[in-house]
Simulated scan of single mutants.
Amino acid sequence: MVASSTVPSVASIFVPESLRKKTKTQEQAREQRVAAAAEKKSAAQKKRELIAKRAEAYETEYRAAEREQIDLARKARAEGNFYVAEEPKLIFVVRIRGINNIPPKARKIMQLLRLLQINNGVFVKFNKATKEMLQVVEPYVTYGVPNRKAVRDLIYKRGFGKINKQRISLADNSMIEANLGKYSILSVEDLIHEIYTVGPNFKQAANFIWPFKLSSPLGGFRERKFTHFIEGGDAGKRDEHINGLLKQMV
């Protein structure tokens, strides 16, 4: 008669204390990673919802402002008057001339405006100080009032941020939040809104955007490039006509 062999049960197998501690530590680390991933996913979802709500609110604000302008113009016509809109707060400036024969004062202003190359463009808050600066450099630049579409196209199609003195594409909202989050600017739509409405943090937002590198306009500038716009050239103030030029340069 053959004696049956005794097989130790799983419970009776000796497990070293160090291995039990290691297994427990690994399980805790795994649980923490899973919890952190879930928390990160939830936070990202909430942020996307916040950005979407803000974008919707901006759109409502834009439509209300446009409707107000239309209503004011109609009211003025009904009363036999002319409606004169408020002076614009935002302008877009494009450099159209090189460095040759530029006097020192104009050259310094171009540096302050960050217009270092031909076809560079920047958003500028239009006030008394910038108006005086533009009068000095008017023969070397053209500028006007960008509409909302022009602002969006510029930032979405040609927008780059200045991050650690590097020119970085604005392809990810996280980069905008990392640099402008303390000003409650979390996304591209927030950035567009701050620029277009010339918000309280306009200076920080505008300085964050690297000067736009635009293409030469389709067909080139006019033959009298250095003549003022109102005289048939390209230089100087062109008000809302800047939008047609930007459409060709973006």
Score class of each variant (00 low, 15 high):
Met110Thr: 01
Pro16Cys: 10
Ile91Asn: 04
Glu68Tyr: 01
Glu31Pro: 01
Glu27Pro: 00
Phe123Met: 01
Phe160Tyr: 15
His241Tyr: 12
Gln32Asp: 10
Tyr62Ser: 00
Val137Gln: 02
Asp239Ile: 03
Lys247Cys: 03
Glu223Ile: 11
Glu56Ala: 15
Ala76Leu: 07
Ala171Arg: 13
Val94Glu: 03
Leu19Cys: 02
Gly121Asn: 13
Val141Tyr: 08
Ala76Gln: 05
Lys125Tyr: 08
Gly144Glu: 07
Ile91Thr: 06
Ala35His: 06
Lys53Ala: 14
Ala171Glu: 13
Phe14Ala: 13
Gln69Lys: 14
Phe126Ser: 07
Lys41Cys: 02
Leu154Trp: 04
Val34Trp: 00
Met133Pro: 02
Ala73Gln: 11
Pro104Phe: 00
Arg20Glu: 13
Glu240Lys: 09
Asn100His: 13
Lys165Pro: 00
Lys149Pro: 00
Ser216Trp: 06
Ser5Arg: 09
Asp153Ile: 01
Tyr196Ala: 09
Lys237Arg: 13
Arg167Gly: 04
Pro103Phe: 02
Asn81Trp: 05
Pro146Cys: 05
Phe14His: 12
Glu39Phe: 02
Glu79Lys: 12
Asp239Pro: 00
Arg224Glu: 10
Asn164Asp: 13
Ile91Gln: 06
Thr25Arg: 10
Asn119Gly: 02
Ala150Gln: 13
Val250Phe: 00
Gln32Gly: 01
Ala29Trp: 01
Lys203Phe: 14
Lys203Val: 09
Pro103Lys: 13
Leu214Val: 04
Lys22His: 10
Glu49Leu: 10
Val141Asp: 03
Ala35Lys: 14
Glu31Arg: 15
Leu19Lys: 14
Ser4Gln: 13
Gly159Met: 02
Asn243Ser: 09
Thr60Gln: 12
